[in-house]
Structure formats: C-alpha cells, structure tokens
C-alpha cells in the first residue's frame, strides 16, 4: 500500500459543513476519480482515509490535510486515466506522479471552496497526521474598535492561567487554555475598524477552538481561518505538505 498526503483549503460557504461532511466529500471525490483507494476489511468496508485535526464548523482553512491509502496492485485498472501507471512503472514513481496530479484532478470533483493545493507521497512509516501535528496557526478576524482587543491580548499573554468551562457528557469541565496558547499577536487595521489576531495553539493536551480564544479574550470574532498546521522536527517546525508561496497567496487572502 502507498500513501498520499494532500493539503486542501476550505473556504467560503462550504465552511459551514462539518469535519465529517468533509470526509464524505473526499470519499465521493476519490470514487469519482476512480482512484484505487484501499479499503478496510470486515462486513462494512470503508475507504482508508485519515484526516488530521478536526476543523470546527464555520471556520475556514488553507491548511487542511488528508492521508489517502492507495493500492498499487490496482494502479493499472480503470482504463487510461491521469493516474494510470505506465507498464512496469515502480510504485514509488507511480505514487509521486499520482500525488502531483491531485490538485488539478481532484479539485474539480470536490465541492466549491474545497481546493486541493498540494499533495505528496509519504512513506508507510511516517506518523499519522493525528500524531505528527503539534500546533497550528489561526488567523482570526475581530470586527470593531481594535484598541480593546490589543489590551485583551496583552492581558491574556500576561495571565498565568486562562480558565474556560465546557459541557462534556453532561458535566461541566474547566480547562486552562493558557498553556495551549503558544503565541499570539494582534494587528489593528489602518482604519481602526477591525483587528486581526494571529494565534499559534498547541494540539495537546487538546485542540483549542477559535471560539474559545475569542471567549477568553472577551471579544466576538467574524471569521477564523486555520492557516498552518505544524509538525515539530528536530526543534524546528515544518508543514505536513509545503505549498509553493505563489499558490498560497492566491487563496482569497486567507494565507497569513
């Protein structure tokens, strides 16, 4: 089996769909492409796809990821398509070529606003997205006078703890968000009508939603966009799939 890791954006109206909805969109798009996706066994086989961190419904993103497991045994089934292996082509070469075709060929098969921006092959021994990603960057738009937002960010960063409560299985749980806020800066716009927050959050012990950040800051946000997910390697950060800068900049100004 081989694995392709794709990076995609979720922008516009489609942001109101859920993480599970996105998984179904991918399953259907891969079937429409006829790609030889591998299936689980059992009485109710399902395609082997795995997504990274869930994106909260209503948030946009230019940095979503999915790992797709494909079966090289079937690399020449389905007639002549963009992904068909050449006779005698090695699986390694095949998967690299196929991954390169993901943005062009899968984007039209996904709903508007879900755009594949890059893909690459990853080896079977690479940790899953779920294990590998340690932090992500959010860009949060806060409409209104930026001055109180600037103050709120300073206060939050200076605080020793930032407690939030949430309902979980009928019980109220209190968490401290402060350790999860790795970095935060605020940029007021020139006209003084809005502020843009850039926040880096850790994924462990749990992910932090933009709504929670807004709530500890005491502000209400317009839109939130996840712009990066980060893998920590040898003390430095890298993205699971790097996009060419030109491509990122095209994406509706959502890239940081």
């Amino acid at each position: 089996m081989v694995r392709v890791r794709a990076r995609f954006a979720k922008l516009g109206k489609v942001r109101w769909t859920s993480h599970r909805d996105v998984a179904r969109m991918w399953e259907r798009a891969l079937r429409r492409a006829g790609l030889p996706v591998a299936y689980s066994g059992g009485f109710s086989p399902h395609p082997l796809l795995s997504f990274g961190l869930a994106l909260p419904t209503g948030c946009e993103s230019t940095a979503e990821y999915v790992d797709v497991v494909l079966d090289p045994e079937r690399s020449r089934t389905g007639g002549e398509t963009w992904w068909t292996a050449d006779p005698g082509e090695e699986p390694g070469s095949w998967v690299t070529r196929m991954a390169a075709g993901f943005p062009e060929h899968l984007t039209p098969l996904l709903p508007g606003g879900v755009d594949v921006v890059a893909a690459r092959s990853v080896t079977a021994d690479m940790p899953s997205l779920q294990q590998a990603v340690t932090s992500c960057t959010w860009r949060i738009d806060v409409p209104g006078d930026p001055a109180p937002v600037v103050v709120a960010v300073e206060t939050a960063l200076a605080a020793g703890s930032l407690l939030v409560s949430r309902e979980r299985k009928g019980r109220t749980e209190v968490d401290d968000l402060r350790p999860s806020l790795l970095a935060m800066r605020v940029v007021p716009d020139a006209a003084g009508e809005r502020a843009t927050l850039t926040v880096e959050t850790a994924t462990r012990p749990r992910g932090v939603r933009p709504a929670e950040i807004a709530s500890v800051l005491g502000v209400s946000f317009g839109t939130a966009c996840r712009t990066h997910q980060w893998i920590e390697r040898d003390g430095s950060q890298e993205e699971p799939v790097v996009t060419r800068p030109a491509l990122g900049a095209e994406l509706l100004g959502c890239a940081s």
Partner: peptide, 16 residues
C-alpha cells in the same frame, strides 16, 4: 445567522 444554529450547512446550497 448561521453561527447561531444547528446544522448550518442546511442553508448554504452548493450541492453537486
């Protein structure tokens, strides 16, 4: 209004 309701994607259209 969509941030205030359950299943907001009911109201967006955009189906294949």
């Amino acid at each position: 209004l969509l941030a205030q309701v359950v299943k907001p994607a009911r109201y967006i259209g955009g189906e294949l």
